[in-house]
C-alpha cells in the first residue's frame, strides 16, 4: 500500500509538472483573427438548450451563423447564474479581443457598467433591459414580452370555455412578470369577467412544483394555461394530460407538446443583432436601445398550425398584432 502511494504521488507530481510547464500552448492555438471575421461571445444564465430564455439567444446565433458562414465566429459561456462568474467571463472575452460581447441576462448589468469603460473598442450588448448607462460602447436590448403576452391573452380569452385561466410563473418580477401582466391584460381586453389566476412558484428549476401548480389550476377549473421560464415544462406536461390548451413564451414550445400548445411568443434576437453588427461596421459601438417587438419581427407569435384553430380566433390574433404594431391597441 505504501509503495502504491509513492508511485501514485510520483505520477501526480509528474502530472503537475506537465501541466505547469505548458502554459504557452493555448496562445498559439487561438484562432488567427482575420479582419473580416466577426468574433462574438455571449454569456447566459442557464443552459442554452433550456427551451426558454437562454435558448433564444443561442438560436439567434445559429441563424446568424447560417447567414454569415465563415464571417461569424461565436463562443459562449452558459449556466453563468453566478453574477460574479459571469463578470469574469465578460471581462475575459473582452480581453481576448472578441468584437462583440453579449451579456444575456438582466442581472449582469452592474458588472457590464464596470467592465465596459476598460474596453472602449469592444461592443457590449446587454439584455434584457433598456439601460445603456450612458456608455458609448453598451447597447441595450429588451423584448416587449407584454406584447406577445397580450396577443396570447386575447386568443386564450376566445378559447376558454370555463372562463378560468391559470398562469405558472417563476418569481414575480422581470421578463416573466412583464409577459404575465401583458397576458392578463390581453385576456381582460376581450372579456373582463374571465378569472385569470396567477401562481409564482418561487423557483426557475422546480419542475415538480410547476407541475403541481398546473394540476392545481386544472382542479380549480382552468381549461387554458400559460407560464414563463424553463421549469414550465412540468406544467405543459400536465396541460397535455388534461387536454388543456397551453400558450408558450420565450421559445417555440409546439415541438414539446404539439397537441395542446396553441401559440408561442418567440424571440428573434437575430433581428436586433443584425442591426448591432451593421452599426459596428459603421463605427457605432453602443449607446442604442433596441426592442424586439412585433413590429420589427424581433418577436413573433408562432401559431401551431396543426391544432386547426377556428379562423375567427386566428383573425382576431392577427388583428391584435396589427393593432399593436399600428399603435391602436395600447397595452396598459
Amino acid at each position: 500500500m505504501k509503495n502504491l502511494v509513492k508511485v501514485l504521488s510520483v505520477l501526480l507530481v509528474l502530472g503537475l509538472v506537465l501541466v505547469a510547464c505548458t502554459p504557452a500552448a493555448p496562445e498559439t492555438s487561438e484562432p488567427v483573427v482575420e479582419d473580416e471575421v466577426l468574433r462574438v461571445a455571449f454569456v447566459t444564465p442557464s443552459n442554452i438548450n433550456d427551451l426558454a430564455f437562454s435558448q433564444s439567444i443561442s438560436d439567434a446565433m445559429i441563424v446568424l451563423k447560417g447567414e454569415m458562414g465563415d464571417k461569424l465566429e461565436y463562443v459562449y459561456s452558459e449556466n453563468m447564474f453566478v453574477v460574479d462568474d459571469a463578470a469574469a467571463a465578460i471581462r475575459d472575452y473582452a480581453q481576448k479581443g472578441f468584437d462583440i460581447v453579449i451579456a444575456h441576462g438582466s442581472q449582469y448589468g452592474s458588472s457590464l457598467q464596470e467592465i465596459a469603460p476598460d474596453f472602449p473598442e469592444t461592443v457590449f450588448a446587454w439584455g434584457t433591459t433598456v439601460d445603456t448607462f450612458g456608455q458609448p460602447n453598451i447597447h441595450a436590448y429588451e423584448a416587449a414580452s407584454d406584447q406577445g403576452g397580450f396577443v396570447n391573452g386575447v386568443m386564450a380569452a376566445l378559447l376558454t370555455e370555463t372562463k378560468v385561466i391559470g398562469v405558472v410563473g417563476p418569481i414575480e418580477t422581470g421578463d416573466a412578470k412583464l409577459y404575465v401582466d401583458g397576458f392578463v391584460a390581453g385576456v381582460h381586453s376581450v372579456d373582463p369577467s374571465i378569472d385569470v389566476r396567477v401562481t409564482y412558484i418561487g423557483s426557475f428549476s422546480d419542475v415538480a412544483l410547476a407541475s403541481e401548480a398546473a394540476t392545481t389550476h386544472l382542479s380549480a377549473g382552468a381549461d387554458i394555461m400559460t407560464g414563463s421560464a424553463q421549469m414550465v415544462i412540468g406544467a405543459i406536461g400536465k396541460a397535455q394530460e388534461a387536454g388543456a390548451y397551453w400558450f408558450g413564451t420565450q421559445a417555440d414550445q409546439t415541438s414539446f407538446a404539439s397537441d395542446v400548445v396553441v401559440a408561442s411568443q418567440v424571440y428573434h434576437w437575430e433581428v436586433i443583432f443584425r442591426e448591432i453588427f451593421a452599426l459596428r461596421a459603421q463605427g457605432v459601438l453602443g449607446g442604442k436601445t433596441f426592442s424586439a417587438n412585433l413590429e420589427n419581427g424581433g418577436q413573433v407569435i408562432s401559431i401551431n398550425e396543426g391544432l386547426g384553430l377556428d379562423q375567427s380566433v386566428l383573425d382576431k390574433a392577427n388583428e391584435t398584432i396589427q393593432g399593436i404594431i399600428a399603435g391602436t391597441i395600447a397595452i396598459p
Partner: peptide, 22 residues
C-alpha cells in the same frame, strides 16, 4: 403544505407569493 400554498395563490388570497412559497 406545499400544495396548500399553491391553492392559496390560485384562489387569489392576497399574500405575497414568496410568503406562500416559504
Amino acid at each position: 403544505v406545499n400544495a396548500l400554498q399553491l391553492w392559496i395563490q390560485v384562489l387569489g388570497i392576497p399574500i405575497p407569493s414568496e410568503l406562500a412559497v416559504m
